[in-house]
Design a protein around this nucleic acid. Structure first.
Length: 570
RNA sequence: CGGGGCGUAGCGCAGCCUGGUUAGCGCGCCUGCCUUGGGAGCAGGAGGCCGUAGGUUCGAAUCCUACCGCCCCGACCA
């Protein structure tokens, strides 16, 4: 394409709305423009990058034996009522009425629609296994859209759904997708990790997330320095070594702690370590207050709490709610004689003669022992893992890093097929529910994540497989016939060689073109200028390494063709 | 939804506190000259319901009220 004929509205200054680097650069490079909160138009170059991701995803899905289809974005509420998600999904599901006043919604995901297709069109075990996918625009009315394409309300997603005869067969389908995803992100040229994950509101039993490693990631992931273990922080299991009781149970004692509310203050006042204290946090689980016990120096992991309680939603109660529920001001709460349900982190169960709030202002209790003094509803892994904890799989040392979730694979089981009564007949003529899996890739987010991971102060540095163009040819002498002829010929020759090339044929000064080329992040920049008139050679600059080489246009075509195709075939 | 901030030319901002007649600056855009290896220079020019509605006032971008929109921090997720 010719730059002069292409809409690439680059910006010298960064629009005030953009906070994270990918958002800023996509705006500045003229890739996207915002229409309204969380909703963007994709301009030609932005779309080109999105198409690159789509094509890689499509090829790998097809290679894995999945079939592409396309489902509607507008869906009838009835379907969502069947699975119970019309209620459960909450305000993120954009609902509206059509002219006949029928309830409808914009699809944030397509389990309902695909399951409807399955129950209507798949009847026999002979039809299975099958994996159907689409690449489509989704709409989720996010509470707070932000970071440009990283968390938009409207975004492009690849979603795939597998149907199997049994759990074992479903595991195979899952594994195939897991492998396909590894190939996808490897081919995209991204540094990523597959991690164990919580399955969230989509439901299901088993799940992995694919995380692009980047400082701006919204998720924290935990990886083992010793083995292959990697998990989302919110999922990573804490393993506590079983501990023998060493101290005899001491007598319960009430001690005065005037005005000492925070863990730190209490510990300092009493001259104890935070690990001898148990804090009592009150959460609202689907609106019902529950007290949660963790060691003083630990943090509650809300996702784990949610799972233990089987709640759809948990939220830390504020001071007033705590007082209303317990009659105790925050800071002096404790499990002994508290009015509400109590759950405890497993670690607390092995603590001896510890300290807690006395459920009375300005008092704490000493020498508390869980089994003797408290009534506990449930004990489980409720706290956030730390790098001081052992790897749950090999006991090795853990490290944390930030990641951007770009893909997620779930084993769904029969939840949807049961609620929607989607069945097939097995070999023995018996009706069975499909065992399902679902698999998502955030296509637009992949582009954002790629930029988060690959940029410098001058702009984007696209991995070759995702770049809108592989090469940009700069005509640095549009008024010079020799230079212009050479640039035009090179442009044509590169195209003939099957290379995607942008020709900067604008009547601009060289520095201006360099800046734009860097900003756009095109992997190879070819300068055709005065040097060519003198020596017959052009310059190639590698956007990533900054390396500059000189060669004749003829050898350039050969060299670039080789480099690009090797990058694409990795 | 809770907390914080912002809406003035295509973009980035000043002006507002302390109302006053032609609303400014930089970038970008248009014309011409000049220039041509890291976002040049000179000259001329176009472009603004000052977010919307109401109120106060002789007079409102400026003060007051409501609404709308956007951004940032928390709960959600590809």
């Amino acid at each position: 394409m010719r730059y002069s004929k292409t809409l690439i509205p680059t910006l010298k200054e960064t629009p005030a709305e953009a906070e994270v680097i990918s958002h800023r650069l996509m705006l500045r490079a003229g890739f996207i423009r915002k229409l309204t909160a969380g909703v963007y138009s994709y301009l030609p170059l932005g779309l080109a990058a999105i198409r690159k991701v789509e094509n890689i995803v499509r090829e790998e899905m097809n290679r894995a034996g999945a079939q592409e289809l396309l489902m509607p974005m507008v869906q009838p509420a009835d379907l969502w009522v069947e699975t119970g998600r019309y209620k459960k999904y909450g305000p993120e599901l954009l609902r509206f009425h059509d002219r006949h006043n029928r309830e409808s919604c914009l699809g944030p995901t397509h389990e309902e629609v695909i399951t409807d297709i399955a129950r209507k069109e798949l009847h026999s075990y002979r039809d299975l296994p099958i994996n159907l996918y689409q690449i489509q625009t989704k709409f989720r009315d996010e509470i707070r859209p932000r970071f440009g394409l990283m968390r938009g309300r409207e975004f492009v997603m690849k979603d795939a759904y597998s149907f199997d005869v049994s759990d074992e067969a479903a595991s195979l389908s899952y594994q195939k997708m897991y492998d396909a995803y590894k190939r996808i992100f490897t081919r995209c040229g991204l540094e990523f990790r597959a991690v164990q994950a919580d399955s969230g509101s989509i439901g299901g039993s088993f799940s992995h997330e694919f995380m692009v490693l980047a400082k701006t990631g919204e998720d924290t992931i935990v990886i083992c320095k010793n083995c292959e273990f990697a998990a989302n922080m919110e999922k990573a299991a804490v393993v506590v070594a079983p501990k023998e009781r060493v101290e005899p149970m001491a007598e319960l004692e009430k001690i005065e702690t005037p005005g000492k509310r925070k863990v730190e203050a209490v510990c300092e006042f009493l001259g104890i370590e935070a690990s001898k204290l148990v804090k009592t946090m009150v959460f609202k689980a689907d609106g019902v207050p529950v007290a949660v016990l963790v060691r003083g120096d630990r943090d509650v992991e809300e996702v784990k709490l949610k799972n233990l309680l089987g709640a759809a939603d948990v939220e830390l109660a504020d001071d007033k709610e705590v007082f209303d529920a317990t009659g105790v001001p925050t800071g002096y709460l404790g499990p002994v004689g508290i009015k509400i349900k109590v759950v405890a982190d497993q670690e607390v169960a092995s603590m001896e003669n510890f300290y807690v709030g006395a459920n009375e202002k300005n008092f704490h209790l000493k020498n508390v022992n869980l089994d003797r003094d408290c009534t506990i509803e449930a004990i489980g892994d409720l706290r956030q893992i730390t790098t001081a904890d052992p790897c749950p799989e090999c006991g090795g040392q853990l490290a944390t890093t930030e990641g951007i979730e770009v893909g997620h694979v779930f084993k769904l089981g029969t939840g949807y097929s049961e609620s929607m009564n989607a069945t097939f007949q097995d070999q023995h003529g018996k009706e069975k529910h499909f065992v399902m899996g679902c698999y998502g890739v955030g296509v637009t987010r992949v582009v954002a994540a790629a930029i988060e991971q690959n940029h410098d102060e001058n702009g984007i540095i696209f991995p070759i497989p995702l770049a809108p163009f592989s090469v940009v040819v700069l005509n640095l002498g549009v008024n010079d016939k020799v230079i212009t002829d050479a640039a035009e010929k090179l442009y044509g020759d590169l195209q003939k060689a099957g290379i995607e090339v942008l020709l900067d044929d604008r009547d601009e000064r060289p520095g201006f073109k360099f800046k734009d080329a860097d900003l756009l992040g095109i992997p190879f920049r070819v300068n055709v200028g005065k040097g060519f008139v003198k020596s017959g050679q052009v310059e190639v600059k590698n956007r990533k390494t900054g390396d500059v080489e000189e060669m004749t246009p003829e050898s350039l075509v050969t060299v670039l063709k080789k480099r690009i195709s090797s990058a694409l075939s990795s």
